[in-house]
Every structure is written in structure tokens, then in C-alpha cells.
């Protein structure tokens, strides 16, 4: 009986193993690149909103503190999105007739809350809490970037698990003075290593890397 497979099939067989492995690695690498890229993570991509609310004007220009609007950020898991009355505190007088602000006034008249498109959205299986971060000296800017320069809100970090862990493993590289967490202009005058090491001790910061810290 003639040989079913000639000798040269050996090379093809070997090649196909290598190609197969290459294909799988290729797919994984591509997937890795895609899931870290801006198309998937939306990092650096500004969101359109019904009212073009500008942090650049309100925080950078007028100098309003984050906590004026995001009132629960020091007390709760959720930072809070300001209700319509917060806008009306100023816009009942300033730009009171601007067409741009009509949705705000309509919401004020009808009592129907404004709808904002979410910019940050962790998967529901992740637990996150603002208050602990703010209390331990992690500033808004560390996670959200220079908000005071954003005409429209955008994400500055992926919010991937590796990002959370990069800080949870080495908090001393990121923590700053508690009193200045909400100040986008604050720069520490010491070098981060000295300050961070000191604050980790002073604020008794733990390195929380157990899965159950964030997946509970």
C-alpha cells in the first residue's frame, strides 16, 4: 500500500502547529491592544451632553470647588451628580435666558431630573468607594486628570483592574495631602517618594490587593 502521507507533509504539519500558535498569540495580542486602546476604553474621548457643561469654565475659570456640586464624594461610595437646583443657584441670575441652558430651566420647571451621559462606568461586579480614597489622600486629579482643563468631561484612565492595582500595590507613589484632594492646582513641594512614604505611615494606608476588596 502506498504511503498515505508523503514525507513533505511533516514540514507542513510542523508549520501548521507554528502558524496555529502564532494565530492564537496574534489574536490575544490584538485583543490586548484593542481593549487597552481608546476605542474600547474611551480614554481621552469627550462625551457630548445635552447641555455642554464645562468643567474648564466652572472649575478652572470660576474656581468652584468640586464638592460644591459633587456633594457626597467625601461621605459615600458615589460622588454625586448635582441636581438641577445646584445649577439654578447661579443660573437663575447668570445666563438666565441663554438658550444653551433651556434644558436646565425646563428640568427646574417640570421637576424632571436632567439626564447626563455617564463618562465613567465600572462593571457592576466591581465595588468602588470614593470616600475612602478621598480620606486617604488620593486626589481627584490622580484618577480623573486635570478636570479643570476639560471643556467636556472625558476619562483619563482606563479603570482597568491593572490600573487600580498599580496604585493599590504602591500607594506611596500616588497619595498626597488630605487637605488638598479636591484642589486641581495643588502640587506637592517635597518629592513624591518622601511625602508618599510619610503619608502612608501617617494615614495608616494599607496595601489592599485581595480580590474581595473590589469583588464582593
Amino acid at each position: 500500500m502506498a504511503q498515505l502521507f508523503p514525507r513533505k507533509i511533516n514540514t507542513i504539519a510542523k508549520l501548521s502547529i507554528i502558524m496555529g500558535l502564532g494565530l492564537v498569540t496574534g489574536i490575544l495580542v490584538l485583543g490586548g491592544i484593542l481593549t487597552r486602546g481608546p476605542y474600547y476604553t474611551q480614554v481621552g474621548i469627550a462625551r457630548e451632553q445635552k447641555v455642554p457643561f464645562s468643567h474648564k469654565h466652572h472649575v478652572g475659570g470660576v474656581g468652584i470647588d468640586c464638592r460644591f456640586c459633587h456633594t457626597s464624594v467625601e461621605k459615600g461610595a458615589f460622588a454625586g451628580i448635582p441636581p438641577t437646583t445646584t445649577c439654578m443657584k447661579c443660573h437663575s441670575q447668570i445666563f438666565a435666558d441663554a438658550p444653551m441652558l433651556e434644558p436646565v430651566r425646563e428640568s427646574f420647571r417640570t421637576g424632571k431630573p436632567m439626564e447626563w451621559t455617564k463618562v465613567h462606568d465600572l462593571p457592576d461586579y466591581v465595588y468602588f468607594d470614593h470616600s475612602i480614597h478621598v480620606k486617604k489622600g488620593v486626589s481627584c486629579v490622580t484618577c480623573h486628570g486635570q478636570v479643570d482643563k476639560m471643556p467636556l468631561m472625558m476619562k483619563k484612565n482606563t479603570l482597568h483592574m491593572e490600573w487600580c492595582l498599580s496604585c493599590h500595590r504602591n500607594p506611596e507613589k500616588f497619595v498626597g495631602l488630605r487637605e488638598h484632594v479636591a484642589d486641581p492646582h495643588w502640587k506637592n513641594t517635597e518629592d513624591q517618594k518622601t511625602l508618599g512614604t510619610r503619608l502612608v505611615k501617617e494615614y495608616k494606608i494599607k496595601k489592599l490587593t485581595d480580590c474581595s476588596v473590589c469583588h464582593r
Binding site: 458615589f78 454625586g80 457592576d124 461586579y125
Partner: peptide, 18 residues
């Protein structure tokens, strides 16, 4: 399986803030 991205753990039927 590689492409099978079920979203039902990301978006669970529970109420979160707002």
C-alpha cells in the same frame, strides 16, 4: 468562546445610584 462576550455580569439587573 474567544469572542463570546456576555455582558450580563457587567450590566447586572440591579439599581445603582441614579
Amino acid at each position: 468562546n474567544l469572542t463570546g462576550c456576555m455582558r450580563d455580569m457587567q450590566d447586572q439587573p440591579k439599581y445603582k445610584n441614579l
